[in-house]
């Protein structure tokens, strides 16, 4: 499958990093917009275990890392979300996001950047690393060899194109 290179991409960057509940509320509004191809949540990793120091290896009890439900799909959120990158069908979809975000971010500002934030074609290095069979939708977003696969958010709605990936 070839990803279209002309599809616009955007990045929603709030001035504060979002907790799981706020992320859930925002995603609930975003994922129902028709025309999203791919979506990536970026942010600071919240480790399962304490990674450094004398307490290394002990459980990291936190409410920042949890499984949220987005449009009926469970998403294992293991970052504190700093930005949301999206690849969409056309620029009208980005305008819709802008309207959603204008209404959503009332306590602190945000901005939407338009540009190219995800790879649209695998590079030579990707080919050497992952071979010809690698999923081209995932290259540049996550390590295709990771065991935990991206979440497929499917919207049971006729007007959208089947599903979105996180």
């Amino acid at each position: 499958m070839d990803t279209a290179t002309d599809h616009p991409q955007c990045r929603i960057v709030p001035m504060r990093m979002l907790g799981p509940d706020t992320t859930k509320r925002l995603l609930e509004q975003i994922v129902v917009v028709p025309g999203i191809h791919r979506m990536l949540l970026n942010g600071q990793n919240i480790p399962l275990l304490v990674p450094y120091g004398p307490a290394r290896g002990t459980e990291n009890k936190t409410n920042l890392r949890k499984t949220i439900e987005v449009a009926g799909n469970a998403v294992d959120l293991h970052v504190q979300v700093g930005s949301i990158t999206l690849e969409v069908e056309n620029r009208k979809v980005i305008d819709t996001f802008r309207k959603i975000c204008d209404a959503f971010f009332v306590d602190f500002p945000y901005h939407i950047q338009e540009g190219k934030f995800m790879k649209t074609h695998p590079t030579l290095v990707d080919y050497a690393r992952y071979g010809p069979g690698a999923d081209r939708n995932l290259i540049g977003l996550v390590d295709p060899k990771r065991k935990d696969k991206p979440t497929l958010i499917s919207i049971s709605n006729e007007r959208v194109c089947g599903g979105y990936e996180i």
Partner: peptide, 26 residues
């Protein structure tokens, strides 16, 4: 923060707290 200190240069959390991967204070 004795260890896992990252947070100085990051945006604040939505509640205004400095990011802490271990959430030592709430």
């Amino acid at each position: 923060r004795g260890a896992t200190v990252h947070g100085h240069s990051l945006r604040l959390s939505e509640d205004g707290m400095q990011f802490d991967a271990l959430q030592r204070c709430v």
